[in-house]
């Protein structure tokens, strides 16, 4: 297999000193397309945040071969204020942050890239519309356009198809496959098992600890999924529920 894009080494992530992800080790190879699957409270979002660097590991470490600047991260939609008064084009241009920073002007080249990105996600001519007027699906397309502007070699998606209509999901999945074809490394937190089986060659099964990590057909077996559900029931019986990132 090709070289490692991201390496997790005994990674433990905690909120308020209570561990949400424990002792995860493994490698995301360059160009891999991985789904992260697990029950509620399994630490899936936490793991993504740990990889991006939004949460500092309390043990172990994350190594990113090309540096964190090469990671683009799509948070859950619930964390973004959709009524915010901003134009679609400006929201997409934010993807160029690493190039424009605080001061540099948004020139015609970036404007052009914004147009291209909007057409790529099926929102041609939406640049001058306010974000507040979009549906949930259209808003998710805007966030994908922003990812396009980031032009990163590693892309992390946190529940990208939640609360999104079927057509949008299909369009955006096509975009994800396109990225995969361009040899980008993609990691997505997903709930829909059918989607995972159909589109994601590799799956990481997480229940605070790493249960399985490998080819989707070997990982998404009834036995493994049953084991995963059993673990989440154990936490609920133990009565201590950890904060999931989006709560």
């Amino acid at each position: 297999m090709s070289e490692a894009a991201i390496t997790l080494d005994d990674l433990t992530l905690a909120y308020d000193r209570r561990p949400a992800v424990q002792h995860v080790s493994g490698v995301f190879p360059c160009g891999s397309l991985t789904a992260i699957v697990g029950p509620n409270g399994a630490g899936k979002s936490t793991l993504l945040k740990g990889i991006v660097g939004l949460i500092r590991p309390s043990r172990g470490r994350v190594t990113c071969a090309s540096g964190r600047a090469q990671i683009a991260y799509l948070p859950q939609q619930a964390e973004i204020d959709r009524s915010f008064p901003i134009m679609v084009g400006d929201a997409v241009a934010a993807g160029a942050w690493r190039r424009i920073g605080v001061m540099r002007a948004i020139g015609p080249d970036i404007r052009g890239q914004v147009q291209d990105a909007l057409s790529a996600v099926g929102l041609e001519g939406f640049a001058r519309r306010p974000v507040g007027s979009l549906s949930a699906g259209q808003f998710q397309r805007v966030l994908f356009a922003r990812l396009l502007l980031q032009d990163a070699s590693i892309i992390l998606l946190d529940e990208p198809f939640n609360a999104v209509d079927q057509r949008t999901t299909a369009d955006l999945l096509r975009l994800v496959r396109h990225w995969h074809g361009e040899q980008r490394t993609i990691i997505a937190v997903l709930h829909d098992y059918e989607q995972v089986r159909a589109h994601f060659p590799t799956t990481l099964l997480l229940a605070r600890r790493l249960l399985e990590w490998g080819p989707t057909a070997n990982v998404m077996t009834p036995a493994n999924l049953h084991r995963m559900r059993g673990m989440s029931e154990d936490w609920e019986e133990a009565g201590f529920c950890l904060p999931e990132a989006h709560r």
Partner: peptide
């Protein structure tokens, strides 16, 4: 005027700004 862009971005999507190193 100097901090306008990051300030607006941070209102819109704080997680994104932190993730891109703002």
């Amino acid at each position: 005027a100097f901090i306008y862009r990051p300030l607006v971005l941070e209102c819109l999507d704080p997680g994104f700004l932190r993730a891109v190193g703002g």
